[in-house]
Structure formats: structure tokens, C-alpha cells
């Protein structure tokens, strides 16, 4: 350990942690590994929804990870705060996706420390895209990672959403979006419930309704688990920064949604 720091530590001009790793120790990068032929079965994360509200954006995810028709984990966190003004949610191969998010978090903080300034929201979205692009080889083997990225744009004072495909394509979404196996149903619910000028608490309600609908029709998405008290992960980003919603608050909203759906399985409209 006590050795002179190698030349990669002193190469000039780079403020990207990923590029530093590629030069110093590529084995630490998800894209830097050679993977043997064949298909493995690994836990998959499922549904993430994101909703823009007045002055910010919210992201919510269920807690289930599945492996085939087997529930691999019931309380996995799939929504992450990536820096002071952004959040990312993941669907797809859970292990790889969490690694990508971890790397992305370090990437953003690394840039912030070296440059002494915040990265623009588009910059962050593009950095994430290049990480997903690096994962294409693994995606071809069935180990795809599909993130959803949302952040607060300091310049305009609005929340923005970016979606991705497995090839690293990055697309800006309007109003709301969902990814993962239950996303079809969640998107349907969001489309009916979303309107302009939502408040933060209304957005929380809508996100939980959408996740409920996703869990209703998709077996891989976890519904509200009242007996174990497992609630969706919800993070909000606005002028106050990125923060997780307190689980007690989420519990109350979930309880209301579940109660309102008694004898009314279609939910709010």
C-alpha cells in the first residue's frame, strides 16, 4: 500500500472518476470486465415511476426484486439520491444497476470536488448515458440496466426527467415517466392522474397510485406490504435539494390509498 501514487493519479485535465478508473484499474468498472459466454439468472429490479410537480420532481420505486417467478428481495431500495439536486432509479439487473448508480454518485461528487462547481443537469444525464452505453455488452447477455434519472434544474427552477434505453440513448421526458416490468400499467395510471401544477403531496399520492396499479397487474412489482410495513421508496428533488420522504409519511399515504381502494379497485380518477 505504501507506494508512490501511480501516474494515473497525476494525469492532468480529467475530472471524471470513470475515466480515471479506466486508466488506473479498469477491472473496477462494470464495462471493464470480460464476462464468459452464457446466461446467468440474477435478481431483477422492477418498477420505478417519476412525476414532475410544481417546482420539482419526485421519484418512487417499489421494493421488490425478482428472479424468474421467485421473489429475491422484498425490501430492496431502487431509488437513489445521486447528488444534492438529482435522483436516479433503476430497473433491470439489480446488482449491476446498483453498481452503476454507486459509480455515478462518485462520478458526480468527484467532478464537484475537482472542478469546484456543480455539473449541469444535462451533463449529469449524459454521464449516466455513457455509463449505460458501456454496459451494452452485458445487456446483450440479458444483464440489462435501465435507469431513470430526474433532477432539479437550478437555472429554470423546474424538475426534469431523463429516460434511457439499453444502448445508452438518453431522452428527456415530459410530465411523468415509468420504467421496469410494471411500467406499462404505471404509465397508464400516471397519464390519467397527472395534471399541471401538482403540489408535492399530490405528486406523492399519484406516484403511489401508479405503483399500486403496477403491482395490481404485474406480478414482479411489489404492492403495499401492510403486514411487514414495507413502503415504496420516495425521493423528491426541488429547491430544497434531494431528499427521501420520511417512511411514516409514506405509510400514511399508502394507508389512505389502500383504504380508498376498498370496493373500488380502480382507484382514484
Amino acid at each position: 500500500m505504501s507506494e508512490r501514487l501511480s501516474a494515473a493519479f497525476f494525469s492532468s485535465g480529467g475530472s471524471s472518476f470513470t475515466e480515471f478508473l479506466a486508466a488506473h484499474d479498469p477491472g473496477l468498472l462494470p464495462s471493464g470486465r470480460t464476462v464468459p459466454e452464457g446466461v446467468v439468472e440474477a435478481p431483477h429490479g422492477t418498477t420505478i415511476v417519476t412525476v414532475i410537480y410544481d417546482g420539482g420532481v419526485l421519484m418512487a420505486g417499489d421494493r421488490r426484486a425478482t428472479m424468474g417467478n421467485f421473489i429475491a428481495n422484498r425490501e430492496m431500495e431502487k431509488v437513489f439520491v445521486t447528488d444534492d439536486y438529482s435522483v436516479a432509479g433503476i430497473a433491470g439487473t439489480a446488482g449491476l444497476a446498483i453498481e452503476v448508480v454507486r459509480l455515478f454518485q462518485v462520478e458526480l461528487e468527484h467532478y464537484e470536488k475537482i472542478e469546484g462547481t456543480l455539473m449541469s443537469l444535462e451533463g449529469k444525464a449524459n454521464r449516466l448515458a455513457s455509463m449505460i452505453r458501456g454496459n451494452l455488452g452485458l445487456a446483450m447477455r440479458g444483464l440489462a440496466v435501465v435507469p431513470l434519472f430526474a433532477g432539479y434544474d437550478i437555472d429554470t427552477g423546474k424538475g426534469r426527467i431523463f429516460s434511457y434505453d439499453v444502448t445508452g440513448g438518453c431522452y428527456e421526458e415530459q410530465h411523468h415517466h415509468a420504467v421496469g416490468s410494471g411500467s406499462l400499467f404505471a404509465r397508464g395510471a400516471l397519464k390519467k392522474l397527472w395534471r399541471t401544477g401538482l403540489s408535492r403531496s399530490e405528486a406523492v399520492r399519484i406516484a403511489i397510485e401508479a405503483l399500486y396499479d403496477a403491482a395490481d397487474d404485474d406480478s414482479a412489482t411489489g404492492g403495499p406490504d401492510l403486514s411487514r410495513r414495507i413502503w415504496p421508496t420516495i425521493a423528491t428533488v426541488d429547491i430544497e435539494g434531494a431528499q427521501f420522504l420520511d417512511s411514516e409519511v409514506v405509510a400514511q399515504v399508502v394507508a389512505t390509498v389502500v383504504a380508498d381502494r376498498q370496493d373500488n379497485p380502480g382507484g382514484a380518477r
Partner: peptide, 15 residues
């Protein structure tokens, strides 16, 4: 005291 800048940027200690 709980500014948004808490432990949250580390997935292992995000809460």
C-alpha cells in the same frame, strides 16, 4: 438539522 445533504449519497447508508 436534517439538510438534504445527509448520508444519502451512499447506497449503503442512504438512510
Amino acid at each position: 438539522g436534517d439538510s438534504p445533504r445527509h448520508e444519502s449519497t451512499n447506497p449503503q447508508t442512504q438512510r
